[in-house]
Design a protein around this nucleic acid. Structure first.
Length: 609
DNA sequence: GCCGTTTTCGGCCCGACTGTTTTCAGTCG
């Protein structure tokens, strides 16, 4: 059995091993490390080694390991504690790194890291965040000018000392100053939903430029990641200077940072940077494939090219000096023995296994959604009335919705107690009779309280036609308690689905810590459905969790969490997240026509009683 | 530091742009 407790950094668990005769035979304490903390330590180690001028492949091994651990669905601490498991079975983890992980998990740190930290101050590592400053220059600044902080770096640039260093110069010093200024005011990744309207606008702008045949966005934007760090556009044009000039002249562009024959880099007023690449037609597919990434995906694709005696770059696929193909992505993938892979899957996770075995999923499309099972009205914190929300849903072509206002615990949002909720439902019943072309479910977004009870009694929940159970408060509780709360909801027969599973707000609030494999296992066993909350700041569950839900056969619903009639607009971001998790329409319950959806829901509910 | 349908050593994806050089290193994606 496992107990865990404590808060903040020093988090401890006690494993008590009990023999068949219930006698305690072992007892010890180990710090429970979040995977993200181990990832952070390995990334820091890689940065430090890079500044030290270490073997780049060794550094990459650390970064690969960090990624492997970051993508891992289960806790590394648990694998370490489990004597039947081997860290070395994980990709990119060998004997050496397994031992280092073991050390980190059991001691909370790594002697090698401590030693490096004593040689290279934290401020030097911080300099790597300055655009244009890499490990070599950071090391030179530290060794030759004793710069150990961003503040000192600024001073030394302004004094002219940096410009005098060998390999530096006036322009380098100036670009460091600009990089420092940029770091202060921006540097954050933006939500996909914040970038998408501008990206569409820029694409439309460039498509109007004479001589431009095609323009598309690549990069993390095309992969539909939750956030976008910079934007990559690819153009097929007869006159590259003309396209670049057109982009530079767009009012959204603040400054041209670089410009060459084929590549232009600009800073947008929105705060992010953007690359424009102009490529010839015969290279367009290879370039689109290349600039879409991810980097890890491309490494695998290029490796496959090498195995076949080919070389792949953004200009095409070459055998010696001869171009074999490159005009379309399809022919590039085909040449390395793969079917075309949807951009959302290109993260070097499962897509190559699927592609090779012929089991790539046909991904869900935004147009597949027929219902929305999470929205609010003026009864709590929504801006639209029941009628307004129904009419807005109808206008979007939705065939069924659930009205899910807050339960009483969410007092700030005027949450509903049993009495108000029953009146609210009675009102929904009356109003829905006026709308024969859409089915409206009497629902509730019921809080899972800090003490692992539900915010409304079972007899009330039993009257609901759709119950979404969610965490809003106490998100910083220890993982064991969060897990217990979720298990309570999962085991309650009236709960249909778990909404915004971890409560995270991207870039603002971390996900609640929990035993995710246990929670998902519980959901699979109890037949509960998992919500993908389409709000651009939530997108919770994330892509990795969604992928695990898919493997466990947990049905998914994609919901808007609309708080106004405009709130349905975000549904597509939920669909993107589902695509990144590898979901087909068949995996998502609210792609079903009403009749089939209703039968599935009733079957789920009967199975629970 | 990892890894192996050319296996236990010798590889590890590839090119654009910039600045400081005088043929290239550093940074970035």
């Amino acid at each position: 059995m496992v107990f865990s407790g404590g808060t903040g950094y020093a988090r401890f668990a006690v494993w008590i091993h009990v023999s068949p005769g219930e006698r305690i035979i072992g007892f010890w304490c180990v710090p429970v490390m979040q995977n993200s903390e181990i990832t952070r330590l390995f990334e820091e180690l890689a940065d430090l080694l890079e500044i030290q001028g270490e073997n780049p492949f060794r550094i990459r091994a650390y970064r690969n390991a960090a990624r492997t651990l970051g993508d891992l669905p289960e806790s590394v601490s648990q694998i370490v504690a489990d004597t039947t498991r081997q860290l070395e079975d994980l990709p990119g983890i060998g004997k050496d790194l397994a031992a280092k992980i073991q050390t980190i998990v059991t001691t909370g740190t790594l002697p090698q890291l401590e030693e490096l930290r004593s040689v290279v101050p934290a401020g030097v590592v911080e300099m790597l965040r300055v655009p244009g400053l890499g490990p070599k220059k950071a090391a030179a600044l530290f060794q030759q000018l004793q710069v150990t902080s961003l503040a000192e770096l600024k001073t030394q640039c302004e004094s002219g000392a940096v410009a005098k260093l060998k390999g530096f110069g006036a322009k380098t010093a100036q670009s460091i100053l600009e990089g420092l200024a940029h770091l202060e005011q921006a540097g954050q990744r933006l939500y996909l939903a914040e970038v998408e309207p501008l990206a569409e606008e820029l694409l439309a702008h460039l498509r109007r430029v004479p001589g431009v045949t095609r323009v598309e966005a690549a990069g993390s934007f095309r992969r539909r990641r939750e956030t976008v760090g910079d934007l990559d556009l690819l153009a097929l044009a007869s006159d590259s200077a003309g396209v670049m000039q057109a982009l530079a002249g767009h009012p959204a562009v603040e400054k041209v940072l670089q410009q060459g024959e084929t590549k232009q880099r600009v800073r947008l007023k929105l705060g992010l940077e953007m690359d424009l690449r102009v490529v010839p037609a015969e290279s367009y597919g290879a370039a689109l494939q290349y600039f879409t990434g991810s980097k890890d995906h491309n490494i695998v694709v290029r490796q496959r090219a090498i195995e076949r005696g080919l070389k792949l770059n953004e200009y095409g696929l070459f055998r010696g000096e001869t171009r074999e193909c490159g005009a379309t992505e399809e022919e590039v993938y085909a040449a390395v023995g793969l079917p075309w892979i949807a951009p959302e899957l290109r993260e070097a996770r499962r897509e190559f296994d699927w592609a090779i075995s012929g089991s790539l999923p046909t991904l869900i499309e935004p147009g597949d959604l027929k219902g929305d099972l999470h929205m609010h009205t003026t009864a709590t914190d929504g801006a639209g009335t029941i009628r307004e929300m129904i009419e807005a849903a109808l206008a979007r072509g939705l065939k069924y919705i659930a009205i899910t206002d807050h339960s009483q615990r969410v007092s700030m949002a005027n949450g509903l107690d049993a009495g108000r909720l029953r009146k609210h439902w009675a009102e929904i019943e009356t109003i829905r009779a006026d709308y024969p072309h859409i089915h409206v479910l009497k629902g509730i977004e019921c809080d899972i309280l800090e003490d692992a009870t539900l915010d409304l009694p079972d007899d009330v929940l039993a009257e609901a036609e759709w119950v979404l159970a969610v965490l809003h408060y106490g998100l910083k509780q220890p993982a064991a308690q969060i897990t217990r709360r979720l298990m309570t909801a999962i085991e309650n027969p009236h709960v249909d689905a778990i909404g915004h599973l971890t409560g995270r707000l991207i870039g603002k609030r971390p996900a609640a810590e929990m035993d995710l494999p246990a929670v998902l296992q519980g959901m699979a066993q109890q037949g509960k459905w998992l919500e993908i909350n389409a709000h651009p700041a939530r997108l919770d569950a994330d892509d990795l969790t969604v992928a695990q839900a898919r493997e466990l056969g947990i049905p998914v619903v994609i919901n808007s969490d609309a708080h106004s009639v405009q709130g349905f607009e975000v549904l597509k971001y939920g669909v993107y997240q589902a695509r990144r998790g590898g979901l087909s329409a068949a995996d998502v319950m609210n792609t079903l026509a009403w009749g089939e959806f209703h039968r599935r829901l009733q079957r789920r509910r009967r199975a629970d009683h």
